[in-house]
Design a protein around this nucleic acid. Structure first.
Length: 541
DNA sequence: ACTACGTTGTTTCC
DNA sequence: GGAAACAACGTAGT
């Protein structure tokens, strides 16, 4: 057993050296420092029952991104005379064993607002406290402390962006100097009987070559890690005009050679990049230019969106569900697994939608507006499938999937919360055409359509058979027919949304399971009447 | 009851 | 590229 004072730095998110207050505290006034990451099999080990390669909780793309981030962290720690201690098992149990086995008197980890960590961290803190171990758990993942904002708002989270921005104001540390580097770290103490490993490879986690082939790693352009994050940041910051004029809604979702955004989201998700440091960098640029865009559309505005969703998610019980979620409209979504499967597997027959879903599967990332299109299509726009189903697919496949932001955006796009104008439906045909009339994005992600003339590429089913033959793509054989007709499906969705909203209003939000069941039946009856007037006559008599 | 406001729709016409 | 028409939601404040 080591003598002197030992600190344990537990990494979860916050996989970085720069602006990492927990690491700073752990390394200060300690004889020994144990930097730990716990490989949780639930998050990392293969689960072959899942619909895509990966674990029960994460797709392989995000697991790979995480491993790369860990390797980078390990190599940074080694440069400071330390290393990352990788352990395996249930994080709660492993941590308790570490605390018992090593002579730890200080436990440091970044505060996390997600329900999973809320309950886990509570248990650990109470164990530490009973063992006389000091814990330090700073809020460093977001710009603001969600709890502070909620308190300022009288106990409830603000539900609009503008009210959030007003409440939040400027962060207290806005003009203070962040600690961007560490010169050295205390040595690692005796690890006793704990089993320590290097950062594993994907193969060492138990994945097979065939699973790796499905992933097609060479096709995923984003590499994890703090170094990569800072490199990306430093590539675009000197382009002050681009930073100052950034306007999110004007971005091009079809740009893929050079994505039209920063693609820093996965790095922020894992904390490879500090949101506070990013915030200060943006402010530095803004100070140097005459004028710049403002939230919500500006680049800084995007960081505030992130904090907005973290705040609402933290202050809303059952935020990730429709039932029992006080801010979520109760809507009688369909349970049609065949439609969900078609969407998930990129065979809806709408090339714009399918191309986006292929990019999601291959890259684990798509442009924000592309996400809007497929989320709207799955839910209130066309298929009327439950947003929780789409959320699950995104949560698995996105490398930047973040619990608060992903759920928040699905609530938003499905018109379940925050946003209610369900008549505004993204067209699976014209929206993409606006940006990419030639269909280059579709041709890249759906090579089967690469020779389709641009007149038909967004609606290949309208191409004459001779054109389809020449393009070597027969609709219904080489590329699927559409699962629904957009005009009739979106009209039907509008009607259902209208009825559901009326029900929610009538019952003042307390819609029961039975109420939804009744509405489903009513919607079905009304639909039959429209299709078959005879039933209508019978009913009227 | 009325009004202002809210990330980011589509189509048509100029 | 911009403007207007289309059809029109809920929430929060008065």
């Amino acid at each position: 057993m080591a003598t002197g004072s030992g600190s344990l730095m537990w990494f979860r998110k916050g996989l970085r050296i720069h602006d990492n207050p927990a690491l700073e505290r752990a390394s200060g006034a300690s004889s020994f420092l144990y930097p730990v990451f716990v490989i949780d099999p639930r998050y990392m080990a293969p689960d072959r029952r899942a619909f895509s390669p990966g674990s029960s909780l994460a797709g392989l793309n995000r697991i790979r991104f995480l491993l790369e981030s860990l390797s980078d962290l390990d190599s940074s720690l080694r440069k400071l005379g330390s290393r990352l201690l990788v352990l395996k098992g249930d994080p709660g149990e492993v941590l308790v064993r570490c605390l018992k086995e090593w002579n730890i008197n200080k436990l440091c980890f970044e505060y996390d607002t997600e329900p999973y960590y809320q309950s886990l961290d509570e248990k650990l803190k109470s164990f530490a406290s009973s063992a006389g171990i000091e814990t330090f758990s700073p809020v460093s993942h977001t710009l603001f402390n969600p709890a502070d904002i909620i308190e300022k708002n009288g106990g409830r989270p603000p539900l609009s962006y503008q009210s959030f921005v007003k409440l939040a104001g400027k962060p207290l540390w806005e003009s203070s100097t962040l600690n961007l580097s560490i010169s050295s770290l205390p040595p690692i103490g005796d690890v006793g009987s704990m089993e320590i490993s290097e950062v594993p490879t994907i193969i060492e986690l138990g994945y097979s070559d065939s699973e790796l082939n499905v992933l097609q790693v060479d096709e995923t352009p984003f590499r994890g890690g703090e170094s990569e994050a800072l490199k990306r940041l430093k590539e675009f910051l000197p382009n002050k005009a681009w930073v100052a004029n950034f306007e999110k809604p004007k971005g091009d979702p079809s740009a893929f050679d050079k994505p039209d955004t920063t693609v820093l989201s996965p790095y922020l998700k894992f904390g490879c990049l500090s949101s506070g440091y990013f915030y200060q960098c943006l402010n530095d640029v803004y100070r140097d230019v005459k004028k710049h865009t403002q939230p919500p559309v500006s680049l800084l505005g995007q960081l505030l969106w992130r904090d907005f969703f973290y705040t609402v998610a933290f202050g809303t019980p059952n935020f990730d569900r429709m039932k029992g979620n006080r801010i979520c409209k109760q809507i009688p979504w369909d349970e049609r697994d065949e439609l969900l499967a078609a969407w998930r597997e990129a065979r809806t027959g709408y090339p714009w939608i399918d191309a986006i879903m292929v990019q999601l599967k291959k890259w684990g990332w798509m442009h924000h507006l592309a996400r809007h299109c497929v989320a709207c299509f799955l839910t209130r726009g066309d298929l009327f499938v439950h947003w929780e189903k789409g959320r699950d697919v995104f949560e698995r496949l996105l490398i930047d999937s973040d619990w608060a932001i992903n759920n928040g955006n699905w609530l938003w796009l499905s018109c379940s919360s925050f946003f209610y104008q369900y008549n505004r439906i993204y067209s699976p045909i014209s929206f993409g055409k606006k940006y990419d009339p030639n269909g280059n994005y579709i041709r890249h992600f759906l090579p089967v359509l690469k020779d389709m003339p641009k007149e038909y590429i967004y609606e290949p089913w309208t191409a004459p058979l001779s054109v389809q033959t020449k393009a070597k793509c027969i609709i219904g054989r080489d590329y699927p027919k559409t699962v629904v007709g957009h005009d009739s499906a979106s009209k039907e969705c509008r009607r259902k949304m209208g009825e559901a909203y009326a029900l929610n209003q009538r019952l003042n939000g307390s819609v029961s399971e039975q109420d939804l069941k009744n509405l489903r039946r009513k919607l079905e009856e009304d639909r039959t009447e429209e299709v078959n007037p005879r039933t209508m006559k019978q009913k009227r008599i």
